[in-house]
């Protein structure tokens, strides 16, 4: 085994463990801050770790009506997909590990995999609640994937038009060339609109209130996850935690890829430390406003209302953003 490959494996393990740890910490923060905003004390910050440990030692029940292999496979697929995503999204201001082996389009597809895995797992569970949840998840995907795709692709297209010759759809290139500095006033407004669209898609992508429709606890008793327990449930839980980091990092990489080290004039290892801390803060800010505040400030929408919201206003906003970016390039 060559040294570079060994090195890459080590880095991969570090990224996986670190990303998971980070996701759990953000999840703990999410629960603590949401509780505080609701006037409660809330669980301790390390509660997600307790939860996962507890789920791991609990019995893994497969319902009698379930398609067992599909039911057991899907949590693994979900976790694998978000794990892979960690290799493609710039974390801590560094280049992604698999930089050059896949681009924004791949990220877009990988983001959809956990949802599809949940849908299949839900259908395989053979429970009416899980089936209703799975149908809802499918509809939700159809609703939010379109504005998400428009947002990501517009940014890639703009960069390819502005800087011909670079590997444009790569996330690391996008992160290295913040668009805010390249666009004119029209494009600036366009970027703002795309940013808004991405912020609204984030809670839907993560299935948080007001878009936790596929899991709606009071309506369909957890929906897709109604039948999952033990190890399988823990894997979905971890996948959810990691996905939060991925979505936060994606937003940061696309819109706020700036580091502090250059500004402070600190180079070398200390510069990296400052950048990593700054990155963690940026991801936290994104999660705070896109997930935590939103989930305590709204009631859950109905599936029809959510679809209408994404197809009309949100798609409209992202299309307008795309149009403005295009105009900015042409004019």
């Amino acid at each position: 085994m060559s040294a570079t490959l060994l090195n890459a494996v080590w880095q991969g393990i570090i990224i996986l463990v670190g990303g998971t740890f980070l996701g759990m910490v953000y999840k703990g923060l999410d629960r603590k801050l949401a509780a505080q905003m609701q006037g409660r004390i809330g669980p301790p910050l390390r509660q997600p770790f307790f939860d996962v440990v507890k789920l791991m030692v609990k019995e893994n029940i497969v319902p009698d009506h379930a398609v067992a292999w599909l039911y057991n496979l899907m949590p693994l697929v979900s976790l694998a997909a978000v794990g892979t995503l960690l290799f493609y999204v710039p974390l801590g201001g560094f280049e992604p590990l698999l930089h050059g082996y896949g681009d924004l389009i791949l990220v877009l597809y990988l983001l959809a995999v956990p949802s599809i895995a949940m849908v299949l797992g839900g259908f395989a569970a053979g429970s009416p609640f899980a089936s209703v949840g799975a149908q809802r998840e499918l509809v939700m995907m159809m609703a939010y994937e379109f504005p998400l795709a428009i947002t990501l692709l517009s940014l890639g297209w703009y960069l390819s038009a502005a800087m011909p010759g670079v590997h444009v759809f790569s996330l690391s290139v996008l992160a290295a060339n913040p668009l805010w500095g390249l666009v004119g006033p029209l494009g600036f407004i366009g970027l703002l609109l795309l940013f808004c669209a991405l912020m609204i898609v984030t809670p839907a992508e993560l299935a948080k209130i007001p878009f936790d429709i596929p899991e709606a606890e009071t309506e369909i008793a957890g929906g897709i996850l109604a039948e999952y327990s033990g190890r399988n449930m823990a894997m979905f839980y971890l996948a959810d935690a990691i996905k939060m980091v991925v979505m936060g990092s994606l937003t940061v990489a696309l819109f706020f890829p700036y580091g502090l080290s250059g500004l402070l004039g600190v180079a070398g290892a200390w510069g990296s430390v400052i950048d990593v801390i700054f990155y963690l803060v940026k991801v936290f800010v994104v999660i705070f406003f896109a997930v935590i505040v939103v989930r305590v400030a709204f009631a859950r929408l109905k599936i029809g209302q959510a679809v209408r919201l994404f197809w009309l206003p949100i798609t409209g906003i992202s299309l307008l953003g795309m149009l403005l970016l295009t105009l900015d390039r042409i004019v």
């Binding site: 801050l33 509780a35 006037g39 409660r40 004390i41 505040v293 400030a297």
Partner: peptide, 19 residues
Amino acid sequence: MIFGTLIKQLFSKPATNPF
């Protein structure tokens, strides 16, 4: 809207009586 209350509660003592 409820945002004012949320921000206020974020920085105030929770209403829960601890065990």
